[in-house]
C-alpha cells in the first residue's frame, strides 16, 4: 500500500494532475487561449478601435477623438467602387474555384486509391509549398506578351478568341496581364487548393452507401448528386468559399500586378496605412470584409449549409 503512494518528481505531478482534471484542462488550454485572445483578437480589436479615431488630413496625425467619419467615407463613390470591385472579383473567383474544385475533389474522395490519392494530394498542395510572391510574379511571365499563354493560343490559332475576350467590357483590357480576365485567372489559380481540400474532406465523410441508397430508391445520378451528395458536401463548399472569398477580399499583391488600374480593398488598406499613414481609414476598410463574411455565413446558414454538420 505504502509503495503505491510513494511517488516522486514527474510521476507525482502526473498523478496530481490526473486527480484534478479541471486544472489539467486549464493548463492545456491557457497558452492557445492567451494567444488567440491577446494576439489574434486583440490586434483585430485594436485596429477596429482605431477606425473610430480622427485623422487629420493636413497634419497627417491620428488623434484619439472618436468619430464615425471614416465609416461615412466608405460610402463615398470612390470607396464604394473599391468595395464593389473587390466583392465582385471575390465572388467570381469563389464560383470558378468551386466549379473547378468539385469534380477533382469528388474524384479524390470517391475514386482515387493508393498512389493516385497520394499523387493528387501532393499535386493540389504542391503550389502551396512555393512562396506566394514567387507564384504571383511567375504569372506575370506566363501572361506576358510572348509568354507561355501567348505562345499557346497563338500556336492553336486562338488569337481571335482571346482578342474577342479582351475586347469585352468589364473583363477585357489591352493585354491578358492588364485585363480583369488575367487578374481573375491568377486569383483562381492561387486560391484553388483552398477550395479543393475542404470539399474533398467533406466528400470523404459522405458514406458511399448513401449514394447507393439514393440510386436504389430511384434517383438518377444527377438527382442523387443534387439531393444527397451536394447537400452533404455543402459545408465543405462553404468552408472553401470562406477561404477563397476572404483571401481575395484581402489580397493586395495580385491586384497590383495584374489587371487594370483601380484599387481593391487590400490595396486600399495597404495604401492607407503605408504611404498615407491613415490608420483609422485602413481600420474602417478592414471591417468591410469582416462584415461581408458575416453576412455571407448567415445566408449560408439560412440555406441549410450547416445542417449536415
Amino acid at each position: 500500500m505504502s509503495r503505491m503512494l510513494e511517488r516522486r518528481g514527474l510521476s507525482a505531478l502526473t498523478d496530481a494532475l490526473y486527480r484534478r482534471p479541471a486544472l489539467w484542462l486549464f493548463l492545456l488550454l491557457a497558452p492557445p487561449l492567451l494567444w488567440f485572445g491577446l494576439v489574434y483578437l486583440g490586434s483585430l480589436f485594436a485596429l477596429l478601435a482605431q477606425s473610430f479615431f480622427t485623422f487629420d488630413d493636413f497634419t497627417m496625425n491620428v488623434s484619439p477623438v472618436l468619430t464615425l467619419d471614416n465609416y461615412r467615407a466608405l460610402l463615398d463613390p470612390a470607396n464604394h467602387d473599391v468595395i464593389l470591385r473587390t466583392v465582385a472579383m471575390a465572388a467570381a473567383v469563389t464560383l470558378a474555384a468551386a466549379v473547378l474544385a468539385f469534380p477533382l475533389a469528388y474524384y479524390m474522395a470517391r475514386y482515387a486509391r493508393g498512389w493516385r490519392k497520394g499523387f493528387f494530394y501532393v499535386a493540389v498542395m504542391l503550389p502551396m509549398w512555393a512562396s506566394y510572391i514567387v507564384k504571383a510574379y511567375s504569372w506575370t511571365v506566363i501572361l506576358a506578351k510572348g509568354g507561355l499563354v501567348y505562345w499557346f493560343y497563338r500556336s492553336f490559332g486562338l488569337s481571335g478568341v482571346v482578342d474577342w475576350l479582351l475586347s469585352l467590357p468589364g473583363i477585357g483590357g489591352d493585354s491578358l496581364s492588364t485585363s480583369t480576365l488575367g487578374r481573375f485567372t491568377v486569383f483562381t489559380y492561387i486560391w484553388l487548393p483552398f477550395m479543393i481540400l475542404p470539399i474533398q474532406a467533406a466528400l470523404e465523410r459522405v458514406p458511399g452507401n448513401l449514394i447507393q441508397a439514393a440510386a436504389d430508391l430511384g434517383a438518377t445520378p444527377f438527382m442523387a448528386f443534387r439531393t444527397v451528395i451536394l447537400p452533404l458536401a455543402f459545408p465543405g463548399v462553404v468552408a472553401g468559399s470562406i477561404f477563397t472569398f476572404s483571401l481575395t477580399l484581402g489580397d493586395y499583391i495580385i491586384p497590383q500586378l495584374f489587371g487594370p488600374s483601380g484599387l481593391f480593398i487590400g490595396t486600399m488598406v495597404y495604401t492607407m496605412q503605408g504611404s498615407i499613414g491613415n490608420m483609422p481609414m485602413a481600420g474602417a476598410f478592414t471591417l468591410v470584409p469582416v462584415l461581408i463574411i458575416a453576412v455571407y455565413l448567415s445566408i449560408a446558414k439560412r440555406l441549410g449549409a450547416f445542417d449536415a454538420l
Binding site: P207, N209, L210, Q212, A213, A214, A215, D216, L217, G218, A219, T220, V228, P231, L232, G304, D307, A308
Partner: peptide, 20 residues
C-alpha cells in the same frame, strides 16, 4: 440495368439513412 431502373428496393446493413 442501373439500380434506379430496377423494381427492387434495399434495406442496407447500416441503414444508410440520409442524415440531412
Amino acid at each position: 440495368l442501373p439500380p434506379y431502373r430496377r423494381d427492387v428496393n434495399t434495406v442496407f446493413q447500416d441503414y444508410a439513412l440520409f442524415p440531412h
